[in-house]
């Protein structure tokens, strides 16, 4: 009985911690949106370069490999079904609908989320955030808003790049390892990519960008305890954003494949 009560207590504690965390993140989003009219383009551009342009190589490479992995993984089954040319279709659908936004989100959790959390946490423990507030300057407008807009915009751009590189990965495996004729591969690939899949992927990418930035900023802004606090904020930001991104991806999959498209 005692064990059961402790178990229920632990679940309750876990639930209340996460409920508070989500509530605080919601408030952060609301306050950030309120500062939107006072947005300036230069800081947003700086963040787009920091977290977007510099992430292109890593996002490209990861998604190239992901496309190749999907093609290799499916090849055995497709060969046995005598449908090896369908590799192009499977890769195109998997990449554009799910893998490109998801993998880009996961990569950016580490690339941008960790950097944002560490940067803001360091500013927090060094009293820079307090200095902003004491100088009547909003940390939300100065720090959160440019990062949020920059990461959201670049997540969409990076997801487009990821779509292309994922399909290129599938093409390399299909054409050079599975001996599918190049024109045949491209034809099936192009036919398989449905127009709504791309914007749906972009909506997911923007949402993942929001999750990454809000989680990272929240962790950074509540950090305390010196270097230890900075490390804790960074780790928590990455772990939480990965968990929330995967959960959100499931929600999007249900929404796009069942609710909007019908079961």
């Amino acid at each position: 009985m005692d064990v059961l009560l402790r178990f229920l207590g632990a679940i309750g504690h876990f639930g209340s911690v996460w409920a508070e965390e989500f509530g605080q993140m919601g408030l952060l989003v609301q306050r950030t949106m309120k500062s939107l009219p006072r947005m300036r383009p230069e800081p947003v551009a700086v963040q787009m370069i920091r977290f977007g342009i510099r992430a292109i190589p890593i996002v490209s490479l990861v998604n190239l490999f992901v496309g190749m992995i999907v093609a290799v993984s499916m090849s055995e089954m497709l060969i046995s079904l005598n449908a090896v040319s369908r590799t192009a279709q499977i890769v195109a659908v998997a990449v554009t609908r799910e893998l490109a936004p998801l993998m880009t989100g996961l990569v950016m959790s580490g690339f941008a989320g960790a950097a944002i959390a560490a940067e803001i946490a360091t500013m927090n423990v060094n009293e820079e955030i307090l200095a902003l507030e004491a100088g009547a300057l909003s940390p939300i407008r100065f720090l959160v808003l440019p990062r949020l807009l920059g990461v959201m915009a670049m997540m969409m751009c990076l997801t487009l790049i990821a779509d292309i590189l994922g399909m290129v990965g599938g093409y390399i495996v299909g054409v050079y390892m599975l001996d599918i004729p190049p024109l045949n591969y491209i034809q099936i690939n192009n036919d398989s990519v449905k127009w709504p899949d791309i914007p749906k992927g972009l909506v997911k990418a923007a949402a993942f960008g929001l999750i990454i930035t809000v989680v990272a900023c929240r962790q950074g802004l509540k950090a305390d305890g010196g270097a230890l606090g900075v490390g804790r904020a960074t780790t928590t930001a990455v772990v939480h954003s990965i968990m929330i991104i995967i959960a959100a991806n499931l929600a999007f999959a249900i929404l796009f494949n069942w609710t909007l498209a019908g079961p």
């Binding site: 360091t122 500013m123 060094n126 009293e127 820079e128 307090l130 200095a131 902003l132 507030e133 004491a134 100088g135 009547a136």
Partner: peptide
């Protein structure tokens, strides 16, 4: 209103708290 009050004051923090 709080911001209006804060614009009338200046603070020197122990570490300087410069924006890095």
């Amino acid at each position: 209103e709080l911001d209006a009050v804060r614009r009338r004051l200046g603070i020197l923090f122990q570490s300087g708290a410069l924006f890095s």
